[in-house]
Simulated scan of single mutants.
Amino acid sequence: MPRPTTAQLAYGSCTVILSTLAMLLLSQTSSGVGITVIALSALALGLLVALTVPLPKPAPKPASRTVARSTASTTAPAPTPAAVESEAVREPVHERTGS
């Protein structure tokens, strides 16, 4: 499971604190059950906000690597030593003529 980002922690914490204060002031409750319900609902709301904060997108892969791989697969294989020797034999021989 990935760790939460700084933005997720900040948004979630602010949501919990502000929603708890707002609900307590608006409901004007003083009972223990009412405060518990408000606190739990504020925690759930803060968790929801923290999870819906957009995560940073992964960096795009460099295009140069993809191009290098695609061109490498289309090039001809390196010649074998036997092929190099056979080409060397095919070259014209320059001999001196006897005078």
Rank of each mutant, 00 (worst) to 15 (best):
R3L: 12
P4W: 04
P4S: 09
A7P: 03
L9E: 02
A10L: 11
A10F: 01
G12N: 08
S13V: 02
T20Y: 02
T20H: 03
L21R: 06
L24Q: 03
L25F: 13
L26W: 14
S27E: 13
Q28A: 11
T29V: 09
S30T: 07
S31F: 02
G32C: 06
G32L: 01
T36L: 08
V37L: 14
A39N: 01
L40T: 05
S41G: 10
A42F: 07
A42L: 01
L43C: 11
A44F: 08
L45N: 00
L45A: 14
L45Q: 01
G46C: 02
L47R: 03
A50I: 04
A50T: 05
L51Y: 00
L51E: 08
L51N: 06
V53A: 10
V53M: 09
P54N: 06
P54E: 04
P56W: 10
P56I: 10
K57V: 08
P58W: 05
P60Y: 07
P60H: 01
P62V: 07
S64H: 14
R65V: 00
V67D: 04
A68T: 06
A68W: 00
A72S: 08
S73F: 00
T74C: 07
A76I: 09
A76M: 13
P77R: 12
A78K: 01
P79F: 14
P79T: 03
T80S: 15
T80A: 14
P81V: 11
P81C: 08
A83K: 15
E85S: 01
S86P: 01
A88S: 07
A88Q: 08
V89H: 14
R90D: 03
R90F: 00
V93K: 15
E95P: 13
E95A: 15
E95R: 14
R96P: 11
